[in-house]
Simulated assay, not measured.
Amino acid sequence: MDAVEQVLTQAQWRARAERHRNRMLHWTQPHHERQRRDEKHPVLDFLFTCYGPGQNQLLLPP
Rank of each mutant, 00 (worst) to 15 (best):
F46E: 13
R14T: 13
Q57P: 03
W27P: 01
V4E: 05
R16E: 09
F46G: 10
V4I: 08
Y51G: 09
L25H: 01
V4L: 03
T9M: 04
H32A: 14
Q10G: 05
L44W: 15
M1C: 13
Q55T: 07
P62E: 12
W13F: 14
M1L: 07
H31L: 12
R19S: 05
E39L: 13
L25V: 01
Q10D: 10
N56G: 11
L8M: 06
R34Y: 00
F46Y: 12
G54W: 04
C50S: 10
Q6P: 01
G54A: 08
G54R: 10
T49A: 11
M24V: 00
E39C: 02
A17N: 15
G52Q: 08
T9A: 03
Y51E: 13
E39H: 07
R16L: 14
V4F: 02
H20L: 14
A15I: 08
H31D: 14
E18H: 02
H20N: 13
D45F: 01
H32V: 14
L25A: 03
W27N: 08
L59D: 01
D38F: 11
L59V: 00
V7D: 05
W27I: 10
W13G: 06
T9R: 03
E33H: 05
H20Y: 07
Q10R: 06
R37A: 14
P30T: 08
L47H: 00
L47I: 13
N56Y: 14
A17Q: 15
H31F: 14
R19E: 12
F48K: 00
A11Y: 04
E39V: 07
L58D: 01
Q55Y: 09
H31S: 15
N56V: 07
D45K: 00
R23V: 04
C50W: 08
V7R: 08
A11H: 05
R21V: 11
L60G: 02
R21S: 09
N56A: 03
Q12P: 04
F46D: 14
L8C: 07
G54T: 11
N56Q: 10
P62D: 09
A3W: 11
L59N: 02
Q55C: 14
L25T: 01
W27V: 05
